[in-house]
Amino acid sequence: MSENNATPTTATATAPEPRGASLTRPRREPMFPEGPAPDPAGDHHERRIRSFQPRRSRVTQGQADALRRLWPQWGLDIDGMRRLDLGELFGEPGRPATGMPVVLEIGFGMGEATAQMAAADPATGILACDVHTPGQGHLLALAERNGSANIRVANGDAIILLREMLAPDSLAGVRVFFPDPWPKKRHHKRRLIQPEFVALAASRIAPGGLLHCATDWEPYAEQMLEVLSAAPDFENTQPDGGYAPRPDFRPLTRFEGQGLRKGHVVHDLLFRRRAH
């Protein structure tokens, strides 16, 4: 997994409980009955090679509290069984956020960068997708602490979200920051940035919207540039056809800073959806 753990990752997590709590909660009872589901899409959709892998870690008490309180308001499961109304999703009861641009972020790790971007641009909605339960709870807590009502946390497979639950041309952009590079050659087929994914993303991004990728893994950056440059629906924002400097709106994360100090090179790729 890359520094930011930005690819969706599954997690089986346990929250700290008071002494003796296991006597009052059946062992197999869901920890968050109204929170993120372990497998929201179930058997409704085909099984396929996925770009994410399981990762286990513990849910802290603060993350668990945020999930219990905020998930019913700001969270959603990717079940692939309905089309989302983004105005309704980002609005308040009876007051849809009509006209608010929405960006999909695929994989947000622990959510620090996502929370910073949301706080810096409150007029843009961020639909943040991951399946790492501690990260979901942490991002919800950060959103509440910052007073950012423009974050929604989606739990599940981003491909199903794009294909089944988002309307064509409904997004202002898609962000994929530090996805798992799957460095071994036999695992390259698991990388998210492939022609099929790029075509799907293009169908959901409105003309003029951005597909923004970032990676610290040089071979993956080269593949990203090759795949995106060949995509007929996108054009590189850089006149020389190469990588872009890190834009101000993408925060420098703690993990990225550590990598830079070790000599890692981070590449940003910004491609704009063509108008047809």
Rank of each mutant, 00 (worst) to 15 (best):
R204P: 01
E34Y: 12
L127E: 04
F52S: 14
P219M: 08
F177W: 15
G209C: 06
G42W: 11
Q136I: 15
T24C: 08
N5T: 02
A6Y: 15
P72W: 13
Q73M: 09
D85C: 07
A206S: 08
L166K: 11
G107N: 06
M100Y: 06
G147L: 00
P251G: 04
A275H: 06
D157L: 08
F249T: 08
L139T: 04
H264Y: 10
N146I: 01
P207N: 09
P26D: 06
P96G: 02
R152D: 06
D39F: 00
I78M: 12
G94N: 12
A120S: 14
V153H: 03
R272E: 11
T60C: 04
L104K: 03
A115D: 03
A119K: 14
V102E: 11
L269Q: 10
G208W: 00
E218D: 15
D240R: 02
D43M: 11
D39G: 05
P8F: 00
A206F: 01
W182G: 01
A244C: 14
N5K: 14
W71C: 09
D169Q: 10
T237H: 03
P183M: 01
G80K: 13
R246G: 00
D65M: 14
E34G: 10
G80S: 12
D77F: 03
M224N: 08
P38Q: 08
R261N: 09
M110N: 13
E235W: 00
R175Y: 14
A230R: 03
R58K: 12
P251Q: 04
H276L: 08
A172G: 15
I205V: 14
E144H: 03
R19A: 15
R175S: 00
A21D: 15
D77T: 13
R250E: 09
V153G: 02
Q73G: 07
R28L: 12
G75N: 08
R186H: 12
P195R: 00
V102T: 15
L270W: 02
P219N: 06
P195W: 01
F249Y: 14
V153T: 04
